[in-house]
Design a protein around this nucleic acid. Sequence first.
DNA 1: AATGAATGAGGGTTCATTCAT
DNA 2: TATGAATGAACCCTCATTCAT
Lengths: 213, 213, 213, 213
Amino acid sequence: MDQPHVATGDTAAEAGNPDKTPRTERGRRTLRKLLDAAAIEFGERGFHDASISAITRRAGTALGSFYTYFDSKDEIFQALVRYMSEQLRDHVTPLVQAAPDEISAERIGLESFLGFVREHKEIYRIIDEAEFVDYASYRRHYETTVARVRQRLEDGAARGEIRADVGEVHAWAIGGMNVFLGMRYGLWDADADIAEIARIANDLLANGLKKQD
Amino acid sequence: MDQPHVATGDTAAEAGNPDKTPRTERGRRTLRKLLDAAAIEFGERGFHDASISAITRRAGTALGSFYTYFDSKDEIFQALVRYMSEQLRDHVTPLVQAAPDEISAERIGLESFLGFVREHKEIYRIIDEAEFVDYASYRRHYETTVARVRQRLEDGAARGEIRADVGEVHAWAIGGMNVFLGMRYGLWDADADIAEIARIANDLLANGLKKQD
Amino acid sequence: MDQPHVATGDTAAEAGNPDKTPRTERGRRTLRKLLDAAAIEFGERGFHDASISAITRRAGTALGSFYTYFDSKDEIFQALVRYMSEQLRDHVTPLVQAAPDEISAERIGLESFLGFVREHKEIYRIIDEAEFVDYASYRRHYETTVARVRQRLEDGAARGEIRADVGEVHAWAIGGMNVFLGMRYGLWDADADIAEIARIANDLLANGLKKQD
Amino acid sequence: MDQPHVATGDTAAEAGNPDKTPRTERGRRTLRKLLDAAAIEFGERGFHDASISAITRRAGTALGSFYTYFDSKDEIFQALVRYMSEQLRDHVTPLVQAAPDEISAERIGLESFLGFVREHKEIYRIIDEAEFVDYASYRRHYETTVARVRQRLEDGAARGEIRADVGEVHAWAIGGMNVFLGMRYGLWDADADIAEIARIANDLLANGLKKQD
DNA sequence: AATGAATGAGGGTTCATTCAT
DNA sequence: TATGAATGAACCCTCATTCAT
């Protein structure tokens, strides 16, 4: 991971257990090690095959220490999903915002997403598995992600760059398109030319299937 | 389920244990009851929370009877994924093939998919969970599904109905679009007007984001 | 096996289930197939790892047919132990009886035992496993075997061929010696010169450890 | 048992799971309780009828604690066989070594073996059952035991106490003799005069069957 | 805060035996 | 007699969580 360390304090606390926030520097280090280890373990083996003891083993802590920082296996998973969702957002958003127009923004968004998936396959897997482990997190992730797409579309429309009738359906369509291309060309195909994929998909998005002049 | 009964013989046998094919009519009935029960159980509780004993309880058979027809929990899951993938294909394909042109075909395909998801939420869930239980089945499902989309696109292009440069990327983009709309409006939103959703998405697909005249 | 077919009628009946004696020729054939299959299965996999269904599979009969001829897994095992004990006796006895004197008889008994073990490893294993499956059969086998040794010793002493004070202890000592040499040189060592082993052991038996003149 | 407590650390660790060695005194106590309970359970009911839950019930620990110290039922059995083989050796060896000469050593060895079997019937049974549970342990036990006999014989021959041509065959013959006498007079016959049995067998060993002057 | 042993519910799987045809 | 499906008790093992130190 480029930014392997999960931000401490925040993430764990928000998960609903304020008392477990570490008070000392040593505690913060342990929490961080646990989150990093969990990201690898969940990414490699999936939620159910992952075990707390494997996480603590990877983290180099005692088994019992896990429960100093998390109430349950589900809770650390939830913390990770939220964190990874944020990671992804933080990677994509600035690039997209620097785009000259909405069509370009979508191309850049897709390309940066493909790149991110390729670099962080475990993130893709963890977020997807949330569908079966922590449905609320899963849904929140995609709803907020798609909401950002929608906002961009509507802003672009307001600026007159694209058709005016864009809305929620378009946003979900684009979201799905991106995710599947991420799976196909980010996860499964290590050699695909990401920029080219993004260009092709963006052209479809911009012009549709109609015959071009 | 509209067609609640899993075709026997085929599905179970292909899963790799030819010796477990039932030889009597009674055996075929039991196998069918088990598959139906498993579809409900896996759909409602997910693979890991589902238990073999709950499946046999639902099926009204003894626990041991499960192992007369399947070698393991994984095997019945795999059989189900394949069966459900086929169910979905059998639902959508004839409708799509009756479409007057490729653009319409994609609209009809999406609309029938949305309808199918809404009627068979458990199928959506089971296929998706294969990503974490039986990756090969998961991948096969989406690869064959997308391959069908691609074939349609290329046929449409050959007929001059759509742009000539369509290919794999477009097919995956459309596949992802459909799946996400299925999740959003088939699974999550029971009241959405499916035909309207399909129309909007199809219009995007046909014309892109460009401002319309 | 040289004599692969277990004598029918007798053996099964004596095991305590007279009603299960086959009445037709076809029935006798089935019983025989089951016993032969069981001998191989128990010999190869041991009592606990052997399964009734594997036995019937080997025998080429239906699972249910097993219970037409035997009341339980234990019963067929018991029948086999008795049969194999008889096989062994029938192989060794005539050879021993043809010996010119008691010392030679013991040598010939050991040598023929070693040969038998080497040819019928499964018999050795089945009889030994009776210690943990059917203790009565196990004990009966060794008690009758040792009783025959003792009889020979006493007859030999009466004929003045060997010391007069031979008795039960000597018989058990000889029995144990034979069994261990059978394990070491019959079972474990396929290449040992059986006649030479028997000669060495017999010399020990005849002359003891004392320094020879 | 005279020495009911299995030495911890060693035995369990050697079984192949170094990570399961207890690190605290409490852990060592639990491991010891489990081994003691397993010795009784296996001795009374045999490997297959013994259950882990019965072992932990006897030991007064939770079921799960078993797996803190052993990977499987087979592993604890293996540990026990090794331990019991050592117990037996430690009982017999010093007595034998104190013998004035080789012939006496064999008598003392047999007599002490008979006494040991009578006091520790479960040890006899567990070692013998290894033939069907853990063949490698079984074979190792008898090979090392017989190797010790052989060494004694050769040392005795070198000292001129017995015939010079003693070797492996003699050692296995003596081993088998001892084991069978152990079964007959140690296990089965609680009243036999052990010293007298050993004397008779030793006389056979020393002088053979030849008529005595 | 850290450690690691202890707990026990839970579930997948086996297979001897019974039963209906 | 033969067949093969049905039955369900039994058991090994996992692992999230708790507890004592």
